[in-house]
């Protein structure tokens, strides 16, 4: 099936369940482990990731396809636009766009919703270096998504990350009361549980297919 034909809704569902960015690509691990310790921080970070991933994916899609992609600048005179090659800069540009977006969002929140800023304030800067967000932008290019597909993918990946981190926060609450072998406490057991969770999510694999 041509990737351009998949409906955005399918991509959204797939990004949450079958192609969960965290459980199938193991991206966004560091903040996942650090913030799944408590349920409230997990919710805060999950919402922040969803928000940022949705909007930066849209922004990055526009910048990639209107500026960076081959031939996007062909309106420039003298055939210059066709010779310019910017695809190699995609990685750096994506990171910069994400960082700038997060900065601006932080300032907007600080100004207009101090309560929200208090709740998400700590998580927003962390997102700048969250590889899940960058991963979404890069996958969107590799898979050749259209704009709405990309936005659905970004939103779905954010929700998928939120789902995974919420599940893990719930599991870790139980882990606190169980006897974990010495040396596996904390990060070790979390990684093992994440692996088992990823296998459990493979049960969704037949549901939809996007790649």
């Amino acid at each position: 099936m041509n990737p351009g034909d998949i409906s955005p809704l399918t991509i959204l569902i797939a990004a949450i369940f079958t192609n969960n960015i965290l459980l199938s690509n193991y991206l966004g691990m560091c903040s996942f482990i650090a913030l799944s310790r408590r349920l409230d921080t997990a919710v805060g970070m999950g919402l922040a990731v969803t928000f940022v991933s949705t909007f930066t994916t849209a922004l990055n899609w526009v910048i990639y396809h209107r500026v960076l992609a081959r031939g996007a600048l062909s309106f420039l005179p003298g055939g210059l636009g066709d010779r310019i090659q910017l695809e190699i800069f995609a990685l750096i540009v994506f990171i910069a766009v994400i960082a700038a977006f997060v900065q601006v969002v932080e300032m907007v929140l600080e100004r207009f919703s101090p309560a929200m800023h208090q709740a998400l304030g700590l998580f927003l800067p962390l997102i700048t270096v969250n590889c899940a967000i960058l991963g979404v932008a890069l996958f969107m290019v590799i898979r050749g998504y259209g704009f709405f597909q990309a936005v659905a993918y970004g939103f779905g990946s954010g929700l998928g990350w939120l789902l995974a981190v919420l599940l893990m926060a719930g599991l870790r609450r139980r882990l606190r009361f169980s006897t974990v072998p010495r040396g596996l406490e904390g990060v070790g057991i979390t990684l093992i549980v994440t692996g088992i969770m990823a296998m459990a999510f493979m049960a969704f694999a037949g549901m939809v297919r996007i790649q």
């Binding site: 910048i63 500026v67 600048l73 210059l80 010779r83 310019i84 090659q85 910017l86 800069f89 750096i92 540009v93 910069a96 766009v97 700038a100 900065q103 601006v104 300032m107 907007v108 600080e110 100004r111």
Partner: peptide, 30 residues
């Protein structure tokens, strides 16, 4: 020219991002 033009567009893009942040800071910071 390909190299120079590509770099130019890339730098322009970065400058735009920085300008966006500075503008936001100018108007949003209490």
């Amino acid at each position: 020219t390909t190299l120079l033009a590509s770099l130019l567009v890339f730098l322009l893009l970065m400058e735009l991002l920085v300008a966006g942040i500075l503008l936001a800071r100018r108007f949003l910071r209490p």
